[in-house]
């Protein structure tokens, strides 16, 4: 890692268990992110993804460990780290403009009201809500509400954007257009972004790196998948890229089989939590038709993976 803009250093989260003792949600997580990088985190429900994001946002405090952003340890929430909430979290008694201005006025309280509104307008236009400034959230569709949430987060020109499954409550079409917008905005502004998702395609489309988390309790960052797809990928054709299925299969394979007993998988070969293995799935090698059947039955191989321990990871055949 050349530059650590965000560095998660050994964070652990424990909750008191009902019958005494403590439940460890995740333990000793280490991760570094570069400036301008888009990181997605993917894993099953209950592995503590949201807690990791809340720790990054400063809304939650880890039981152990710390997070360093731009050379400084996080101490509570900061206006430099904008959060886009899953439930959009708009203030229903304020208009679209009112919601965005509220954020702008929090960042620059001394600005004149007209300047604040101008700044808000800029970002309302950016997310394509021009003309809806005076509507209340209740009058907006789910997609439009989430756009307001994005405009509010961007309007304060944060150093980092943290997104907690921002599109999970939306229909597929709206989700697609909003993914395009977020990607465009992040590319244009060089935004550092951290996003939780359940959607593998969303992760592949948006992220530079995809962090895969094993199941809780005692979840850990299992692998980091470097996205091999070109930076200028388009939503319309990125799934036709020769490397697409390599990445997708690798992630899905992890989510379906490996995430459950990842602890056992690594027990045999040792696992350095500080150096989470980085994987860069490659194109599937051409398979000769005659060998194809034998190839498939011999082992649950993941063709084209450069991961050295692929064989050790295969579920018992």
């Amino acid at each position: 890692m050349t530059e650590k803009f965000i560095s998660i250093e050994g964070i652990t989260k424990r909750f008191p268990a009902p019958g005494g003792g403590a439940t460890t949600v995740f333990e000793d997580l280490w991760l570094a992110m570069r400036r301008g990088e888009f990181t997605c985190i993917i894993g099953h429900s209950g592995c503590g993804k949201t807690t990791v994001l809340n720790v990054l946002a400063g809304l939650d405090v880890p039981s152990e460990g710390t997070v360093i952003v731009d050379g400084q340890a996080i101490e509570g929430p900061s206006i430099d780290r904008a959060v886009i909430f899953q439930s959009h979290a708009l203030l229903p008694w304020r208009s679209v403009m009112g919601n965005v201005v509220y954020a702008v006025a929090s960042k620059w309280p001394r600005w004149a009201r007209t300047d604040q509104e101008e700044q808000a307008q800029k970002f309302i236009d950016l997310v394509g809500l021009t003309g809806a400034e005076h509507k209340r959230p209740a009058e907006l569709s789910g997609g439009m509400k989430q756009r307001v949430g994005i405009a509010r987060a961007l309007s304060i020109e944060p150093k980092i954007m943290l997104m907690d499954e921002p599109f999970s409550a939306l229909d597929a079409l709206t989700r697609g257009t909003l993914q395009d917008e977020v990607r465009r905005i992040c590319m244009e502004t060089g935004q550092t972004a951290f996003m939780i998702t359940h959607d593998v395609d969303e992760a592949i489309y948006l992220a530079d790196r995809i962090v895969m988390m094993s199941n809780g309790p005692g979840a850990l960052f299992a692998e980091i998948v470097e996205n091999p797809l070109p930076k200028d990928r388009k939503r319309t054709d990125f799934h036709k890229h020769p490397l697409y299925y390599g990445v997708r299969n690798h992630i899905i394979d992890f989510l379906i089989t490996r995430s459950k007993n990842f602890a056992e998988e690594v027990a045999s070969r040792g696992f350095d939590r500080r150096q989470v293995p980085v994987v860069r799935p490659l194109a599937p090698e051409p398979v000769i038709a005659a060998d194809a059947g034998r190839e498939l039955t011999s082992s649950a191989s993941r063709p084209g993976l450069s991961r050295p321990t692929a064989a050790a990871a295969s579920p018992g055949s």
Partner: peptide, 26 residues
């Protein structure tokens, strides 16, 4: 709602402004 308070927290809104702009209207 916790999420409205979290909005105020992430925007570093002070306690007095939070009371008047989030809690009171809510």
């Amino acid at each position: 709602r916790k999420e409205w308070l979290n909005v105020a927290r992430t925007l570093e809104v002070g306690p007095l402004r939070r009371a008047f702009t989030i809690i009171l209207p809510a």
